[in-house]
Design a protein around this nucleic acid. Structure first.
Lengths: 250, 250
DNA sequence: TAGATTGTTAATCGATTAACAATC
DNA sequence: TAGATTGTTAATCGATTAACAATC
């Protein structure tokens, strides 16, 4: 398998902008699928092959790729290495993005240890926490630093992405500090809706919301007809009316 | 603030089905917002209040709520407790869903410790791992058990939700075992596309995909005009052509 | 009654999908 | 050339939004 070199296909001038959000969200999935194919020594793949590996249908995949340009060959398929590089470049992970993690509890700890931080393209430059008891603790080859150092670190390491793994309480304040320090992208694991000014992107990962979405569908599977999944072995909660739900009870 | 009791509003007969997916995904957000309002002692809220708390616009919120029924009062707003219970019931978190976590590495550990497992409505009944070195380890008030016990546990505790926090490698096999054991909803943290039979719901949480989506937008902020965020201090990577990206290099 | 706010309609927007002409 | 497969068009579907009649 030879490298794809820097040749470019036919008309390389595509809008380079205005890729639909739904497509943007799938590009990382395609990138991962291409990496897997590449690791298996597969040099060429059709849209059908790729779509299967990515878990989408081939029409959607071709439509998505068409926003990036014409990187396939009719009658043949896509050069795996070449397409992989094009997508990586489009996403921006041919660069190396500096990331700080704020809030080194269980989850922050887990993310700090996350090997390779998922995919290449990201580099954790600091683990921050405001708790003096945590500051100085070593995690892998890093040391937890004081949240007060945030501004210095963001400036010196050109940090553009912040990950918030604090509890809900301090999350908005942490967010404000990150934004004021110059961070323009935030990945929020705290269970709160954060508000940020225009120009700052925010994404949210929320375990309990994901579980609740699953529960909704699960409830409908059992069917109003069938028996509910209420645990009937313990069966000691005598609530008949308004169970405490969604946090602090009534 | 009095309990909403079991009164039901006007015509309680709505389709009870066919709530759009986008709406289902927002119901947990509304539930959390209502809980926050309730905790602040607020008894009534307008769609505008609620929408602000949930981070959406009020038209969308009203449209979403209209799929559940007519739980508001024109000219007044919504009774916070009452609406909270209705949404909790619609989602299914007035029940208690049994959950197993498979793969007790850093992330599984973190989730096991996650206080209250997010919101009420879910109960971790087992932490499972195939590694004999981990089996028997205590985490909080639970003990890691052998993955081989999966089938017994699922049957005895009527487990319908499984959380996969293994590495990518064993994830599909773990998934297959979960499904075979009777689990019908899966929350997957492993960076792979899992395939499941019809009738099994699967949701995916993927740190590296979230970061890549942020990177995409970040790249466009810097602008093709402005200087790229490439770290220029180390500046030792002499790659000019095809940097290794997305996993194992070329 | 006058003011406020819901629930719903209709218009708009964006995403998905199937089909196929272009072309390797 | 014949077969395969892309890139794109057009139809369909679902989600968002604004506006307002219904009604508390």
């Amino acid at each position: 398998m030879t490298r794809a070199s820097s040749r470019r296909p036919g008309p390389p001038t595509r809008t380079e902008r205005g890729i639909p959000e739904a497509t943007v969200a799938r590009l990382p999935v395609y990138l991962r699928a291409l990496t897997a194919l590449s690791d298996s020594g597969i040099a060429t793949a059709s849209s059908e092959d790729l779509a299967t590996a990515a878990g989408v249908n081939s029409a959607k995949l071709r439509k998505d790729l068409s926003y990036l340009g014409s990187y396939g060959t009719r009658g043949v398929g896509y050069d795996v290495e070449y397409l992989r590089y094009q997508i990586a470049r489009e996403i921006g992970v041919t660069q190396d993005w500096a990331v700080v993690i704020v809030g080194i509890g269980n989850l922050g700890h887990a993310l700090a240890n996350y090997s390779g931080f998922g995919t290449r393209g990201f580099r954790i430059v600091a683990l921050l926490d405001a708790d003096p008891k945590l500051v100085g603790e070593r995690i892998g080859d890093m040391e937890v630093r004081d949240f007060a150092e945030l501004e210095d670190i963001v400036e010196r390491d050109r940090v553009s992405i912040g990950v918030i793994t604090t509890p809900a309480g301090p999350a908005q304040e942490v967010c404000d500090r990150l934004v004021a320090a110059g961070v323009t992208s935030i990945l929020n694991f705290a269970p709160v809706v954060l508000s940020v000014p225009d120009g700052v992107d925010i994404r949210k990962v929320d375990l309990s919301i994901e579980l609740q979405i699953l529960a909704y569908h699960e409830q409908r599977k059992s069917g109003e007809a069938a028996l509910p999944q209420v645990p009937e072995l313990p069966a000691m909660n005598g609530l008949t009316d308004l169970p405490s739900v969604g946090g602090v009870g009534a």
